[in-house]
Simulated scan of single mutants.
Amino acid sequence: MTASPPYRYIKDPAEIYRESARLIREASDLSAVPDELHDVAIRLIHTCGRPDVVTGLRASAGAAEAGRQALAAGKPILCDVEMVSKGIIRSRLPKRNEVMCTLGLGAVAPLAQRLGTTRSAAAVDLWQPWLAGAVVAIGNAPTALFHLLERIHEGFPKPALILGFPVGFVGATESKQALIESGLPYIALTGREGGSALAAAAVNALTGSLDT
């Protein structure tokens, strides 16, 4: 049996994170990103490997701090899909915050049929008991973000922060623009880009920067 090739690579997790953060800062222009969003920007770049992804990053004033305070107060994180939920690093959550996704509940499919919408949107209706002061992470379905905005307009409780990262060619751009114009606290990635990994990364950024 031949010897394995002499691969040279960093194995220490802490060193990997430190080196990643250093290289991201070297490769990225964060001058247009507010200081309070630097952790979020770095996490997003780290997740997709593209420094230019932050050109579409937008946020309301004080949004990141509002999210951090909500997590510190033990508020839950509401996710539109399980992929977002699974990407959140539970060990970093300050109060062992509950991470919830209602998409798979049995009530969702008949509710979607009754409402004439997607299951992702219908699942938002089940968030009502936990929505007040929560952190919402939407990383897949534009219909979920649109429906959330509709329900809040109709009287649902307001979350502390909405992370708007729905992805795709139908409704993603428009739903995020609606969020930006809603007056609600938000962090969003404009345009078609987004996805579950980026939404989870934004949550993880609120619990600690990449290089700590």
Rank of each mutant, 00 (worst) to 15 (best):
A3I: 13
S4W: 06
D12H: 14
A14T: 15
A14F: 09
S20L: 14
R25M: 02
L30G: 09
A32H: 12
V33R: 00
I42W: 00
R43V: 08
T47R: 02
C48A: 05
V53K: 09
V53D: 05
R58E: 03
A61R: 13
A64S: 06
A64D: 11
Q69F: 05
G74I: 05
P76N: 06
P76L: 01
P76C: 06
C79L: 05
V81G: 04
V81Q: 01
M83F: 08
V84N: 05
I89P: 00
R90C: 05
P94Y: 08
E98S: 04
G104L: 11
V108N: 08
G116L: 01
T118N: 11
S120Q: 06
V124M: 00
D125T: 11
W127V: 13
Q128D: 06
W130E: 13
L131P: 09
A132Q: 10
G133Y: 11
A134G: 02
N140G: 10
A141T: 07
P142K: 11
P142D: 03
L148C: 03
L149D: 12
I152H: 03
H153Y: 05
F156A: 15
L163Q: 02
F169V: 01
Q177T: 14
Q177E: 15
L179Y: 07
L179N: 03
I187Q: 02
T190Q: 11
G191P: 04
E193L: 10
A197V: 01
A199Y: 04
A200H: 14
L206M: 04
G208M: 08
